[in-house]
Amino acid sequence: MAEQDKQGSQGATITSPGGGGQPLLATERGTTSIDNAVVTKVAGIAAREVRGVYELGGGASRALGNVTHRVGIGDERMQGVSVEVGEKEAAVDLTIVVEYGESIPQVAEQIRDNIVKRVEGITGLTVTEVNVTVNDLHFPGDDRQPPPEDPARVA
């Protein structure tokens, strides 16, 4: 039973839940909090919605993200995104891989616009900055599977 004895009033007190939640709205009847993970995930989803973004994350983060996602403990929508969240504002840093042939300045600008729109619309936080690092370019041929090895000529 997870019931806890929390003596003392929490009526309109602004509290921060464990795990990095941020207090946002306190009313007479209780508080509403939004965890930092929500801001991270919204920013990741918003970035992926932009044409020209192939993937999020640096090489190591992508490799780790693939492993953790495969074993069911990670969320690829959060890789390559870090956020700093205050009472009313948030700053977002993200690392991306851009499709070869896309204009990096344009992609970065569209990412900024979309993240600001989504994060502000969903969480009510003001996004003060979105810093985009382009870590790599993706070429269409990069996805091609390596040819199967020649079968052994001798048993």
Binding site: A12, G30, T32, V38
Partner: peptide
């Protein structure tokens, strides 16, 4: 959510026992 919880707990006859209702969004 808070309003619905107050209504739902009230409908179960427990409104007098209900204190503050906290809502935390952990994921989307």
């Amino acid at each position: 959510v808070r309003e619905a919880v107050v209504r739902g707990v009230g409908a179960a006859g427990l409104e007098q026992a209900l204190g503050p209702v906290g809502v935390t969004f952990l994921s989307v």
